Simulated scan of single mutants.
Amino acid sequence: MVIGCTRLIRHIGFLKEANGVAGRRGFAVGSKSKKGSKGGAADAPKASALTKEMKSSTVFGANILKDGTDPKILPDSEYPDWLWRLLDKRPPLSELRRKKTETLPYEDLKRFVKLDNRARIKENNALKAKN
Rank of each mutant, 00 (worst) to 15 (best):
G40I: 07
G40T: 12
G40S: 09
G40L: 12
G40D: 11
A41L: 01
A41D: 15
A41E: 09
A42W: 04
A42N: 10
A42E: 15
A42P: 14
A44C: 03
A44L: 05
P45A: 08
P45L: 01
P45I: 04
P45Y: 09
K46D: 12
K46G: 14
K46Y: 10
A47L: 13
A47G: 09
A47H: 06
A47R: 08
A47I: 02
A47C: 15
A49V: 11
A49P: 01
L50A: 06
L50R: 00
L50C: 01
L50Q: 07
T51D: 09
T51G: 00
T51R: 05
T51P: 00
T51W: 05
K52E: 11
K52S: 12
K52D: 14
E53H: 03
E53T: 01
M54Q: 15
M54I: 01
K55I: 10
K55R: 15
K55F: 10
K55S: 08
K55Y: 09
K55G: 02
K55A: 06
S56D: 08
S56N: 09
S56H: 09
S56L: 03
S57A: 13
S57T: 05
T58H: 01
T58I: 07
V59M: 12
V59D: 15
F60R: 13
G61E: 08
G61I: 05
G61K: 05
G61S: 06
A62E: 13
A62V: 00
N63T: 11
N63W: 04
N63H: 13
I64H: 11
I64P: 03
L65Q: 14
L65D: 14
L65M: 15
L65W: 11
K66V: 04
K66F: 04
D67A: 12
D67W: 03
D67N: 14
D67P: 03
G68E: 06
D70G: 04
D70H: 09
P71E: 12
P71A: 07
P71H: 01
K72N: 10
K72C: 04
K72L: 11
I73D: 12
I73M: 15
I73V: 15
I73H: 15
I73W: 14
L74K: 13
L74P: 08
P75C: 02
P75D: 04
P75W: 03
P75N: 14
P75F: 01
D76E: 08
D76M: 00
D76T: 13
S77K: 13
S77A: 05
E78K: 13
E78S: 15
Y79P: 01
P80F: 00
